[in-house]
Write a protein that binds this DNA or RNA. Structure first.
Lengths: 217, 217
DNA sequence: CGTTGTGAACTCATTCACAGCT
DNA sequence: AGCTGTGAATGAGTTCACAACG
């Protein structure tokens, strides 16, 4: 059910896009002996089959050279372009707790072109404070600051209860996407995309898998 | 590729298991008017189709009553049991940074039966410190403490570089599952399951989706 | 040679639609 | 009447296997 009639020519499934991110990561880290990678190498690095890699990469156009492999730099660029991270994305963070602080310190964001340019919180004790070089602003400032700073993405590191209301405020202020850490399903208009990260659910999945694997083998 | 010959009778796919987690969450929060839920209600709460809900729940046995719906309490129990979270899971946390602190405060863990019973770090400045009621221990203590405290799960909130070595140490110490926040693919024996949460990748996926949705609609 | 790109087969997942129970 | 459970249909995603190419 939900929404997505997967956009005009969106040839990439959700899963494929995720794998592209992984390929990209792996290209960056083992940044290349001869400037070229094979599908087998990438497959091994990311933990999928080589056929899968070739199928995924073929979807981006013909970047491989038969008998040789893929040019690492060219491939990285192509992936970044299709994922839409060849440019900068400006984001704000709502809810300045430990998780927010962890995200601010996390270099993975900066590296991939994500700039966190504003912090918001309701707690009067936090407003005005400097956190990782940014001043914490009141939630009410959202409406004017989001357009002012040309913020496109919002990261919600808030409790469940206020999450929907904050999502609504961000939507009204004009953000186009939300990264939600609160364990609730956010309702947004289809123009505002949501990606959810539910930490408790990940732990539950781990328990599930351990339970399965444990008894048997 | 990878491993899983999906365990003897594992009728649940990864995706189904995830949805079960969501149903469970939704059962808890909107904790019930008449003690009964319909597939339509659950579907709406979680954001999937009603048929999907029925298919998922039918896999757990016949807990629904035709013409009536599912008994909320019974359903929650059944889900907890199949997910393996009807009991307590003891976990340790390696790498005591902001993310670790955020996880420790996160009530979602305690609530679902996950007990974090030990903290480890390499930083001498942190060792011995008290964080959220737990003493930070040196990494070397892992080998003895994990069996001693009957720890089954390890949560890795460490940088990429030491992640694999720490995973190895946890494996050697006897943990059965790892929740990995470092953006690297961990190699473990098939007896040690891994669930990975890569925050940068989630942001990338958001950018991708926004990029798709933006131009068109 | 080695390695990509891809039709075809196949497996897994979701939706449809309705019979069957309460 | 209402709502579940499920066979059958459809769709998505993945692997196979090999032709095409440097």
């Amino acid at each position: 059910m939900s929404d997505d009639p997967p956009a005009p020519d969106a040839k990439l499934s959700r899963a494929t896009a995720q794998r592209l991110s992984h390929y990209l990561r792996s290209l960056g880290s083992s940044a290349r002996h001869g400037g070229t990678v094979s599908s087998v190498e990438l497959a091994h690095a990311v933990g999928v089959s080589a056929a899968q890699v070739r199928r995924d990469l073929a979807a981006l156009g013909h970047l491989g050279q038969r008998g040789v492999g893929y040019d690492a730099a060219g491939l990285a660029n192509a992936i970044r372009k299709t994922l839409g991270i060849h440019r900068e994305w400006r984001a704000c963070l709502v809810g300045v707790g430990n998780l927010a602080r962890a995200l601010l310190r996390y270099r993975g964001f900066q590296d991939q072109g994500f700039q966190i340019v504003a912090l918001f919180d309701t707690d009067p004790a936090k407003i005005g404070r400097l956190v990782e070089g940014l001043v914490v602003e009141p939630l009410a400032a959202l409406a004017t600051r989001v357009p002012e700073l040309r913020i496109e993405l919002g990261v919600l590191t808030v409790p469940s209860e206020p999450a929907q209301a904050i999502a609504d405020a961000l939507t009204a202020a004009g953000v186009k996407g939300l990264l939600n850490f609160a364990p609730v399903l956010l309702r947004t208009p289809p123009t505002v995309r949501v990606v959810a990260v539910d930490l408790a659910i990940q732990l539950e999945q781990l328990a599930f898998q351990v339970q399965l694997a444990g008894p048997s083998r």
